[in-house]
Design a binder for these strands. Sequence first.
DNA 1: TATGAATGAGGGTTCATTCAT
DNA 2: GATGAATGAACCCTCATTCAT
Lengths: 204, 204, 204, 204
Amino acid sequence: MQSKTYSPKEIAAFRGLLQLAAGGNCFSNIKVQDIATAAGIGKGTLYEYFSSKEDILSCTMLYTLQQFADWMEQQITRDVSLHAVLARFLDALEQERFLPFRALPVLGTFLSYEQRAQLGMRNREQAQAIIDRMRGYERHVFANSRKNGEIDSALSDRFCEYAILSALGGYVSMLEKRVCCREEISLDSCKDMAQQLIFRSLRP
Amino acid sequence: MQSKTYSPKEIAAFRGLLQLAAGGNCFSNIKVQDIATAAGIGKGTLYEYFSSKEDILSCTMLYTLQQFADWMEQQITRDVSLHAVLARFLDALEQERFLPFRALPVLGTFLSYEQRAQLGMRNREQAQAIIDRMRGYERHVFANSRKNGEIDSALSDRFCEYAILSALGGYVSMLEKRVCCREEISLDSCKDMAQQLIFRSLRP
Amino acid sequence: MQSKTYSPKEIAAFRGLLQLAAGGNCFSNIKVQDIATAAGIGKGTLYEYFSSKEDILSCTMLYTLQQFADWMEQQITRDVSLHAVLARFLDALEQERFLPFRALPVLGTFLSYEQRAQLGMRNREQAQAIIDRMRGYERHVFANSRKNGEIDSALSDRFCEYAILSALGGYVSMLEKRVCCREEISLDSCKDMAQQLIFRSLRP
Amino acid sequence: MQSKTYSPKEIAAFRGLLQLAAGGNCFSNIKVQDIATAAGIGKGTLYEYFSSKEDILSCTMLYTLQQFADWMEQQITRDVSLHAVLARFLDALEQERFLPFRALPVLGTFLSYEQRAQLGMRNREQAQAIIDRMRGYERHVFANSRKNGEIDSALSDRFCEYAILSALGGYVSMLEKRVCCREEISLDSCKDMAQQLIFRSLRP
DNA sequence: TATGAATGAGGGTTCATTCAT
DNA sequence: GATGAATGAACCCTCATTCAT
């Protein structure tokens, strides 16, 4: 499976935008100049590679999905367990080079329905292809986990996916709350809760 | 417990904004003129009641929290079960007059960290008072549910809250996806999954 | 000579506006609400007596001119000297009830040419009548002062008027500078300089 | 003495604003769009060079002061007379390139006390430096004029300054009156009166 | 190719004026 | 008559986009 490649400037733009998103900025509040500055390039240069501000976002999300799919691909072994994948994923989230995984939901969340719909339009097929790829890996992990008793056999793939996404969504919310509401929650207890929610809800 | 009352114009503004938010618009993309139009009043009139666009949002969120707390208060009986509360809540979400409950998370989600922090500043004490009130009801329900076997006694209140909020967050995401990605998910199956996620993860 | 009379509300409006002007506010920066508040009446009430904000100004200036003319009329005696008139005038400026005389130039100065031209349009004849009246008194004083040696007989009335208005204009500027530049000038030395400028320039 | 230099766009903005001010517009009545149009640049461009409308004014006044100080510097010779300086200055006022000298007092006059105080804040030190420079030239001229008998030795510098500023202020008023009241005064007679007022009041 | 100076459409906000009470 | 709640035109300012260099 060959992933699309990007020029250094494009990647700089992606990482610049993701950096800003990770800081908790709504997309509307991120200025094109901010992205250019964060990327270390000129504002005009962005328009050599992208057709609009929205396009930068669209491509960034595609790039991020692709990075994620690539990462998942490497994690897949014959009899991988849900437990192992999750642990590795949550650990990965703390590393700088996995910024995209962390920032993507933030970016996505800060979009209105209409913006999301428009984004889908642009790179629809490519995005769909990547999502299908990830769904494949996902199915593989779910199947293995049903065999090893981590997941109740009666549960559908859709429910498993829903449980995991909800737990991760809640995890991100908790982290944000730490940022803006200054409640005293440790990162580790957040991770524990996320994992517990998934395992408890999927166990037989 | 006496809740703050609002003038008709203020409530019109609240509902106008919530209407727009329920439509999936990021706050930055909602124009003051839009709010005025949705509220059926003049743009200038908004500034007779609110000091700024941000203030409209801040007050709307407070109003919504208050509405929610009032509603919860009515649901609480001596030995209420988690099951009953959740069922009633999910049903309520489908009614027009419960628009606020549905739209609030959307509004909140579409804010940047900084915006959220600033909002907290304005009506901090009032918001905190309402949140404390709701935490009280919550604790009551959790206690009852531990007694009647719905919730594992070993689980902390914090984890229970996290599980419920994650499930509801995922539920809202799913509903949104129905809107923008047009996947074929029925409303009922969404509700089922949300309830299942909660019950499966909290059961002993 | 019968002066026009005004209702209490009108006079309240005049004095309200003059009060604000004496505070050094440009007319554009004075809001209708400010005038209403300063006058102790409702905003809507102003529009019962005046057709517009500009009209309030126009009438206020006319009222002030008239007050001034009335005051001058009382000062005129058969062989009044320039010295006596000036001294009395400068003293009067310090009293509260002579606020109009002090505030008028401020109001006038803060108008653009166009605004001034439009003002002139409204009450043109009345204003002209009052100005003519004052010119009459002025001529009388100048004539007397030429006789008693205060004014060089060779100087025209126009030059005398110009000298006095310039001196008073400079006097007001100096007072203002005391307000905003905080230079250490005493009120008395300001008055001295204004009188000196007039007497030195008009003396034979 | 090195004066600050400005970019062409800045100078265009200065001259645009001065042009409008020379037309007798109160600063509050001059719109940013007007300045942009008068300067021959886009509205947005102004905000690349100035932080706000007030900033444009502040910088314009500073620029004008500086231009004036530069001009004065060139006029100063060893034994310059007040008569010569004044004559040259009044002549200069009639030339297009001396627009700033003519427009500055108009701009300044049309500000409220508060606006003036705020302006002072921004470029306080630079403005003070220029004013000090001009005071220096002024003192030089006054000293010479006392020696050559134009100015009464008993008169203080402050009084001399006050006399000149008052006369010029009255001169500008007269010119304005020509504009808006259409009295039949020739430019030359205005100049004559201004000079006479100064010489008569300062002579021994 | 890469840039950032220049732009103007569009947003939040103010405030003179109206009109129902 | 007296009021102030309601209004929308018009302001200042922002920022995505263009284009000459």
